[in-house]
Amino acid sequence: MGNGTVKLGIQYLRAYNFFYFSLLSIFISFLPVYLSYRDVTPAEIGMMVGFGSFIGILSQPFWGMVSDKHKTIKRIILLTLGASIAVGMLLFTSGQFTLLFLLVGAMYFFLLPTDPLTESLNYRVAEQHQISFGSVRTFGAIGYATASLFIGWTVDQLGMNRLSWQFLGYGMLAFLFALLVSDAPASSKKLSRQELKQFFFYPKTLRFFLLVLIAATPHRTNDSFLGVFVQSLGGSTGAVGQAWFLAAISEVAFFALSARILQKWSEIKLITWATALYTIRYALCALAPTAEWVVYLQLTQGVTFVIFYTATIQYLYRIIPEEWKATGQTVLAVLFFGISGIIGSIAGGWVFQQFGGGALYMAMAAFSLVACGYSLTLWRSQGAGVGKA
């Protein structure tokens, strides 16, 4: 394969990331706002997202194992992405509660598993061509940012009923570029059940997964209720879009810097700092007097989420068997988008409805503080020996 062809393939992958994460921003950022527009209460939103997260626990390992079995990531992405586009069009034109409930579950079955598959594709292609993961994933962050701002503005101007057509447009562009990207290199090594068992039951792995679960729960709660919280403080749909734009644009800068940061410090040290900053971020949101304060606090997303997420991916890929990497990525996604999503959405919806958004964000700060303490314990017990010194 010539150098020009390789470069073109990487550009296609970056374009796919841009439009896929634009599509994902509609679902994650604006689904709670859309449900609220359809008169769904915060507790019911939490129940729907919690149900979807439960579906994600089943669907993400399923699609990951299908990918590993057939030694392809691209074809599985095309399947899940195509189904997501069809289901999303139905979701964002529906208003009946039962139908919304079922369609949200279907989106978690198809769209959310596309995320870990995409991350696996990005990581493997970056590894194959010796480029940084961040140089590819940055384009996803740019897509998420620009789509959040654009969609928030257009919904304010044209109405919520145009959301389905925007979902279709971004979805078709993502599908087109997914067709053009090259498949990721697959391992030819036969899966060893003993290696898999050692991976899942090795104490270091179990401690790592527990840390991810604790830290991810308040993050996923923020995903579910940021838009509703901003609106509860008097913010418009455009302000919700601005909040997600600032969060995503801050990710761009830190994804660009992630390779240098990961070279300099150990993963466990970075996770400890990220969870400490998560604690401060959510506490400040809880104390924010206006929606504008919450919107601008989302600029801290880059230093919290990106540092946490890239450190966990690098650590995971360093300890997992080569032939089970796609499945290992989906296990991480099950914790990040599944179990933590269930806890954060259902419990968060109840707290929001009973005590208000400020109380919810203070509880999220407390949860992040627990994650920080646990991470610090692991850091000290390992002597900062995970990764670099």
Rank of each mutant, 00 (worst) to 15 (best):
G88V: 10
L233R: 15
L163Y: 06
A247G: 13
V334A: 12
I57T: 05
T80L: 03
F175V: 00
M1K: 01
L23I: 04
I45K: 06
L226Q: 06
T146W: 10
A365Q: 05
G50N: 12
F110Q: 03
F254K: 06
S375N: 11
L213C: 04
D183V: 04
T217Q: 05
G241N: 13
G134Y: 07
A178Y: 00
I249F: 14
Y12G: 00
A178L: 01
G227F: 09
M107G: 10
A178K: 00
L90T: 10
N3Y: 08
I339W: 00
A184G: 11
P32G: 10
T41C: 14
G348W: 05
L103C: 10
W350C: 04
Q166N: 14
E127V: 03
G238K: 08
D115V: 10
V294C: 04
S120T: 13
Q194C: 01
T205A: 14
V87H: 01
K325S: 14
L111N: 07
P185G: 01
G52A: 07
Q128L: 02
F254E: 06
T146N: 09
I10S: 02
R220H: 12
T98W: 11
G105N: 13
A178G: 00
N3A: 09
T217S: 09
F150E: 15
M362K: 09
A243M: 07
G2A: 08
I10R: 01
Q353T: 10
L369T: 12
Y34E: 02
W293R: 13
Q314F: 03
D183R: 03
L112Q: 04
D39H: 15
V370C: 10
A216V: 02
F139N: 03
S53W: 07
N3D: 04
V40W: 03
A276W: 06
